Computed example of a mutant assay.
Amino acid sequence: MPSGLAALLDDIAGIAKIAAASVDDVGAAAGKASAKAAGVVVDDAAVTPSYAVGFTPDRELPIVWKIALGSLRNKFFFLLPGALLLSAFAPWAVTPLLMLGGSYLCFEATEKILESLVHHDDAVEIEDLALSSEQLERQKVSGAIRTDFILSAEIMAIALASVTGQPLMVQAGALAVVALAITAGVYGVVGLIVKLDDIGLHMAKGRSKVGRGFGRGLVRVVPGVMSALTVIGTAAMLWVGGGIIVHGLEHYHVPYIPHTVEGLEAWAHAAPVVGPAAGWLAFAIASAVVGLVVGGVIVGALHLLPKRKAAAH
């Protein structure tokens, strides 16, 4: 009996060691994957706040929460199992699907830019006023979750590429950790951004003179910050979408555009002191230009086709 008990304890200890090693593998893989996906995370945090603007303060955090839940649903119900299935059975499909999603981001950003240039803001406002606050909230949340799906797909693809070659369970565990950590981080920051004005108002009513001054300053600055984030969010959609397309073209050995973008990045990266930041900015701008061209082609096609059909009738 003692020998049997000792053998059982040895087996349990062995299983515990294997489990601990697996947890360590998942943790290491998740850390590596999260670091590589950090660039897209910043873009995601810049894009999302614009969807919570224009609502009463009591609805801002609930809207962010709804988008965060939609983001988790995107990642865990669709992207994580989809990524693992594609990796196992159809790895060739990952790149074209990402390029399709990147093209959608380019289209959405280009359409926003064109609408702002042709001054359709009044028409958009009238259309929004025709909706109830509940309908408008559903529309905004739905749009944010669609955009999040593409950005999350890019994050999960980058994360998956970082853990390729690991056992399937380690890949799944790493992707799950990345999905949770990135969603919590992004939407925590987004929640803070959309409540900055309320934080400022609360501080402005405080007892501390320094706190009141800081609060008043925060209230004055927040509208400009939100406007800047709207612009940055649109730009982020362009450079992320364009970057996906550039990487896809490189994958399919269509060299001219990727080599031009990489050449600009390398040239800027060679600058003293500010090289890394300049290289990133050059890549972002070049990718945004590619994204604007792709988005313009799609917008043009979608606008011209209905006109041709109408003319034919």
Rank of each mutant, 00 (worst) to 15 (best):
R73T: 15
G31Y: 00
P49Y: 00
G54R: 05
A93L: 15
L85M: 12
L85W: 12
Y51M: 02
V41L: 13
K36G: 06
R73M: 14
L69W: 03
G27T: 01
P49F: 00
L61C: 03
A45M: 14
G82I: 03
F89G: 03
V40K: 05
A45Y: 12
P81F: 02
A35D: 12
G70L: 06
S34Y: 07
A33K: 01
L61N: 11
V64H: 04
A38R: 10
V40Q: 07
P81D: 04
F55K: 08
A35I: 14
L61H: 08
A35E: 12
S34G: 13
R59F: 03
I67P: 10
S34C: 07
A29W: 01
G54L: 09
L80F: 01
L79M: 05
F76M: 10
A46D: 06
A45W: 11
V47T: 13
V94R: 11
S50Y: 02
K36Y: 08
P49V: 00
V42R: 07
K32R: 11
D25T: 00
I67G: 06
P91H: 11
P81W: 11
A83V: 09
A88I: 08
P62L: 10
P62G: 12
T95M: 15
R73Q: 09
S87F: 14
A52C: 02
K32P: 00
V41Y: 01
